[in-house]
């Protein structure tokens, strides 16, 4: 096609990808495969084992059948404690994540505030709740309270980050409208920022509550209360029928809470 053809058809030609873009595209795919291959070796991946030891696996699974629910009042009680741990762990975290989240937002706080607050939250988030649970068991003794504190510290770190991201994506115009009335900084946040981010904050908090119920089911392994304690004892004692019963109770409870929080989330948004 000659370059002197009429202007219109040439204008309509879709833009060509530049050479540099094409090379980058294939290189990034190649890099992704290299990473996967590299990790395969380290993780000693061997799917064939699943087939070779299929007999062992099926015997193992049969061992769980049928589930033994004779002790169910105890299991239900422990499951309830697990949910109670998650409730308080989440609520305390939300209360602290509100100020920390606002203070680690770039558009609210100056850098000499948001940088240290962010690093503090990074630290709270980086360490798994199981590790915190082990530490708090030493500090406050065995039992659910250690579990509450563990969830509280870890979740504060996570929610503060999510909350601050919501704050950073607000519409600045209502905030300016409030500033123009002669309001103070705190009032700008209360009336300009929080109404905008509240639905998102509630949604994040509910999601973290669900996750915390799941996390709380294993806190008992290190002695921080809840259903994890009997679960760990049953597995260690090879009582697989009872283990199956506990696992079913956990699955049903977690599903029920998921449905519940889904409902609540729909109501607020």
């Amino acid at each position: 096609m000659s370059r002197t053809a009429t202007a219109d058809p040439r204008h309509l030609e879709p833009p060509r990808r530049e050479l540099k873009q094409t090379v980058t595209y294939y290189l990034s795919w190649a890099a992704a495969f290299v990473v996967l291959a590299w990790a395969w070796g380290g993780a000693e991946m061997d799917p064939l084992l699943l087939l070779e030891d299929a007999d062992n696996m099926s015997m193992f699974i049969e061992g769980f059948m049928p589930p033994d629910f004779t002790n169910y009042p105890n299991y239900l009680h422990d499951m309830l404690v697990t949910v109670q741990i998650a409730i308080w762990g989440t609520v305390l975290a939300v209360v602290l994540a509100v100020p920390f989240g606002v203070l680690s937002a770039e558009n609210i706080a100056p850098w000499w505030i948001y940088q240290p607050v962010r690093r503090l939250m990074d630290a709270a988030r980086a360490i798994n709740e199981m590790v915190f649970a082990m530490l708090f068991v030493v500090a406050v003794g065995l039992g659910p309270f250690a579990g509450v504190l563990a969830l509280f510290v870890h979740t504060t770190g996570i929610l503060a980050k999510l909350f601050s991201e919501a704050v950073e994506s607000i519409d600045p115009r209502p905030v300016e409208g409030i500033r123009a009335t002669g309001a103070g900084r705190l009032q700008e946040v209360i009336f300009g920022v929080i109404p905008q981010v509240l639905p998102l904050w509630i949604s994040y908090s509910l999601y973290r509550f669900e996750s915390n119920v799941r996390s709380a089911t294993v806190l008992g392994i290190v002695g921080a209360g809840g259903i994890g304690q009997p679960l760990y004892e049953m597995i260690r004692g090879f009582y697989y029928h009872e283990t199956a019963a506990i696992m079913i109770i956990i699955v049903v409870s977690v599903s029920l809470l998921d449905i519940f929080s889904q409902r609540v989330r729909k109501m607020v948004i």
Binding site: P174, E176, G177, A180, T181, P195, Q196, L198
Partner: peptide, 12 residues
């Protein structure tokens, strides 16, 4: 007091 093109009310 200031009035803005985009009203700048808090919509919620």
């Amino acid at each position: 007091s200031m009035i803005f093109q985009q009203f700048n009310l808090v919509s919620r």
